[in-house]
Amino acid sequence: MTNETPTAKLSAAGVSIWLDDLTRARLNSGSLAKLIEEKNVVGVTTNPSIFEAAITKSDDYKAELKDFSAQGVNAEDAVFEITTADVAAGCELFAPVADATKGVDGRVSIEVDPRKAWDTEGTIAEAKRLYAKVNKKNVYIKIPATQEGLAAITATIAEGISVNVTLIFSLERYRAVVNAFLSGLEQAKANGHKLADIHSVASFFVSRVDTEIDKRLDAIGTDEAKALKGRAGVANARLAYQVFEEIFSSERWGLLADAGALPQRPLWASTGVKDPAYPDTLYVTGLVAANVVNTMPEKTLDATFDHGVVTGDTIAGTYDESNALLNQLEGLGISYNDVVGLLESEGLEKFVASWKDLLNHVQDALDAAGKEA
């Protein structure tokens, strides 16, 4: 593998490339291993939508579902067994990467049942159950950054379990997420856990911010409004990196770092471009900095590998400009708090809907297999 490809340059600039997809076909065909070898992929993220597509749009799980049907397994337990098995296999594939990076990369994420996003205790219990079932050191348990999820993040970290915090849209919520992480580390230390073994990322969503704000800019329709399209997502993420730099240079963090803790890295999620008018690598090349993760759908990964222009850090020195942009949007009557609140609500609704669709499809498959027996 050459060091001159755009993905190699991205990695050299401090960006860990993770694939936003996992299927049994990828694992069994060797295509995921090929992405590790050729395109610098060092981790994988999953979510309910990804599993819904993987299980319902292929025959890879047909035999397993037939066995489950014969055993009288219900849809929820079947989904639990299938998804944890795929994630465990992914963790095995990425184990050499995890070993080489001391657990920083080589990670595979699995999300708690999204229906528990508003249930703190339910999320904690589900996180522990998933962690025990996958039983791999390099698994990440994904917990949505709802208000109720913050305490669950702290409690899960306190147990020594590594966490991927997902569905972050606002700077205020991101600060709360980092605080929950630090509180968890402080409790983990008191509980006797080795802090160097606990890892975390904070998944900050990018493209969906532009989708919602662009819609509002189009409704305004002025030249000033149109000139701001496609810029808010990157600006918001850049300001999140400013928060990251601020908190992880604080005295509170220094005490934890001295005890062996590693920072919670920002992860750029939702990096596939939704508007074809924008460059297809917009949310990759515009968010290059040290100590971040970019989790990409394969289409975005391929575009980056093919023609991404990576010239080094594209975040440093942008904070004043990014703040000014958000202020311009407020001046046009576009409420930042309204946008991010709506996006969190819609994001959770989509994940819950995907999860319910998955359960329904699996139940249909179990019923069909039972009739064939």
Results as ranks from 00 to 15, higher is better:
residue 175 R to I: 08
residue 296 M to C: 11
residue 230 G to A: 12
residue 65 L to F: 13
residue 373 A to V: 12
residue 303 A to N: 07
residue 53 A to S: 09
residue 148 E to Q: 14
residue 233 G to D: 01
residue 19 L to F: 00
residue 159 E to N: 08
residue 327 N to Q: 05
residue 180 A to F: 04
residue 138 N to T: 11
residue 124 I to K: 05
residue 202 A to V: 06
residue 220 I to M: 03
residue 210 D to T: 15
residue 28 N to Q: 12
residue 219 A to Q: 13
residue 175 R to P: 01
residue 59 D to E: 14
residue 7 T to M: 09
residue 318 T to F: 00
residue 199 H to K: 15
residue 84 T to C: 05
residue 211 T to D: 03
residue 93 L to V: 09
residue 255 L to Y: 00
residue 108 V to R: 00
residue 31 S to F: 07
residue 157 I to N: 01
residue 157 I to V: 12
residue 113 D to E: 03
residue 240 A to S: 06
residue 343 L to V: 05
residue 105 D to N: 11
residue 208 R to D: 06
residue 221 G to V: 10
residue 335 S to N: 08
residue 235 A to D: 02
residue 26 R to C: 06
residue 101 T to H: 01
residue 225 A to K: 01
residue 42 V to D: 14
residue 28 N to M: 10
residue 82 I to N: 09
residue 83 T to R: 09
residue 272 G to I: 10
residue 217 L to T: 07
residue 281 T to V: 14
residue 28 N to A: 13
residue 74 N to A: 15
residue 266 P to I: 03
residue 74 N to G: 15
residue 65 L to D: 07
residue 290 A to C: 01
residue 62 K to R: 08
residue 88 A to G: 10
residue 318 T to K: 11
residue 370 G to W: 06
residue 106 G to T: 12
residue 99 D to C: 11
residue 309 V to E: 11
residue 216 R to E: 11
residue 323 N to F: 11
residue 210 D to A: 13
residue 210 D to S: 12
residue 275 D to T: 02
residue 260 G to M: 04
residue 68 F to Q: 03
residue 234 V to T: 02
residue 331 G to P: 12
residue 340 V to E: 04
residue 256 L to R: 00
